[in-house]
Design a protein around this nucleic acid. Structure first.
Lengths: 100, 100
DNA sequence: TGGCTATTTAGCGTATTAGCTAAATAGCTA
DNA sequence: TAGCTATTTAGCTAATACGCTAAATAGCCA
């Protein structure tokens, strides 16, 4: 759990997840979307992978990364649930916890 | 936005937010829940505050911190929305984005 | 004023993070 | 085997993060 939020703390890593939303992509394809070097991107992939947020499948020379949505969902929605937010729209009105 | 996820990356800070869910608490009350020193906790409060996740009200000598739920919600649910998760329970079935 | 409590700021040490270039590894193709 | 592409590992530097103790600040009370 801690590792998930740790992995999410870097904007490049969050954006990688968003890019993978539409399907698996190779390390090179993903890296092309950012200005940093490929070794730097490789480090980001490693962190996402060790947090369980992506999976890497070695398909002959190239590596295809895919999203592991369940880890993301479990960690983030779990925390938000504990915070009392289940995801339903929740405007400015105070529906509970009357102040006085 | 980046600062929010940055602030959420430390377990103590996430737990502080959970403690504030039930209402405002002083810096000292919050600090009592953790093993680290008060100056260390003060640093965590500062980070949460600069991310806009909590508000600090100086009430004569003591400082009462309160949760700023809207910032948390906007950043986290915004990201999750972009990931295609709106918060509704979402089991193992694939309800959209048919694979083939 | 003096003293007490609550909290932050200053200053320091160490660990981690993020970036780079250069080199290594792995698989393909000729 | 040689060469090409894709990706990671190694090794480095600089910046940031996190913890500590000691000291400063701010408000209260006698």
């Amino acid at each position: 759990m801690h590792d998930v939020f740790d992995a999410l703390s870097h904007p490049i890593r969050r954006q990688v997840l968003e890019l993978l939303k539409s399907g698996g992509k190779t390390a090179g394809e993903l890296a092309d979307n950012f200005l940093v070097s490929k070794p730097t991107m490789s480090g980001h992939f490693a962190k996402l992978k060790s947090a369980g947020l992506i999976l890497g499948e070695n398909r002959g020379g190239t590596i295809v990364y895919t999203l592991n949505m369940s880890t993301l969902e479990e960690a983030v929605m779990g925390f938000m649930g504990r915070m009392g937010i289940s995801g339903e729209a929740q405007g400015d009105d105070v529906s509970e916890g009357e102040v006085a």
